[in-house]
Design a binder for these strands. Sequence first.
DNA 1: TAAGAGTTCTTGAGAGTTCAACCATTCTCT
DNA 2: AGAGAATGGTTGAACTCTCAAGAACTCTTA
Lengths: 189, 189
Amino acid sequence: MTQVDHADLDETVDVPDPMQHQDGQAPDGRWLDDGQQRAWRAFLLGSSRLNDALNRQLEAEAGMSLSEYEVLVRLSESPQRTLRMSELAAELVFSRSRLTHTVRRMEDRSLVERRTCRDDGRGVNCVLTDTGFATLQQTAPGHVDAVRRHMVDLLTTDQLRALGEAMAIVAQGPSPQAPAAAGSGTPTP
Amino acid sequence: MTQVDHADLDETVDVPDPMQHQDGQAPDGRWLDDGQQRAWRAFLLGSSRLNDALNRQLEAEAGMSLSEYEVLVRLSESPQRTLRMSELAAELVFSRSRLTHTVRRMEDRSLVERRTCRDDGRGVNCVLTDTGFATLQQTAPGHVDAVRRHMVDLLTTDQLRALGEAMAIVAQGPSPQAPAAAGSGTPTP
DNA sequence: TAAGAGTTCTTGAGAGTTCAACCATTCTCT
DNA sequence: AGAGAATGGTTGAACTCTCAAGAACTCTTA
């Protein structure tokens, strides 16, 4: 329905389409075939819609972004509800800078506190406050519910498991010495 | 490895953990069981890493963000390489405002042009320029390659297909009259 | 045809993110 | 010990996105 029918065209367009081949095949390894293309597009569309939905829900119900929520969750799961900034950043796939800014804003709302590390003078520990924990407890049900409505409950058990497994592999990323293929990749610095 | 062992704690923490139950079960429908939790986390981690990697690649090789790249792709696939702003926004899951800003920046670099609609005075058509098309052609191989390295080539055909199918369902989203479940969801305005 | 309501897009301000310095501390090596 | 490199974190400016308001147009209805 949102798809535009190319057949409507009065002028012929067979300029080489960089993303799709008419015969649905990938002649060399450089393009994606139809199935790969479909999967990739579905991923892009689905993940942005999902992200959108969850952010909206959290924003509306708790005045919080998904990023902030995830900070709370990680801290709540850590011993002493404490984590080094760098570990937190690594787990969340945040840049250090992003985490610094995010945590500063959360500190302003008393959700977390920062304390310099005793054993490493460079380090800073981020600690979940009681306020932060209480906020998480109030917020969690609504969030989990949204995750269910927008993903978990839409899929069968098998589908969800398959999705999880695939994404776990994607999260791992390419092995460092994987073939960098045509024209990209760092030329061994 | 990144997982923190709660057993290490010297103080007992059995405050109700908002995201995880010790027995790995979801007593009512409100929480996620272990498998669901794993899948969800894998999705979060994988999608942010993937997004990161692709953005970096495009930024480095073409000085462009993934958002901008997608604009180019959609336009290149459309008749006359033209799309109404609103259609483009809908396809990309961008807010109108976001698209306006993005397109303005791209217009500054001569990648696209804007023309007011002939048939609807409110509408604006976004048109891919020759420069934009050429840029897309130069950029596409590197990008496709990155998509392969960071996703497609990491999965078996079946895994990729399963991922695509699941994400297509997620993209559909919950059916409008789906049970809103506990305490959230719009109360029929 | 004129008022009101809805649509399409833009604008500007505010909030979040990134990038490139930067400071402080710790590690390494001689 | 001390120079240099590496690590951990912060800062501020530039950039991007969101939100609320507004401008221009079309549709409906009386």
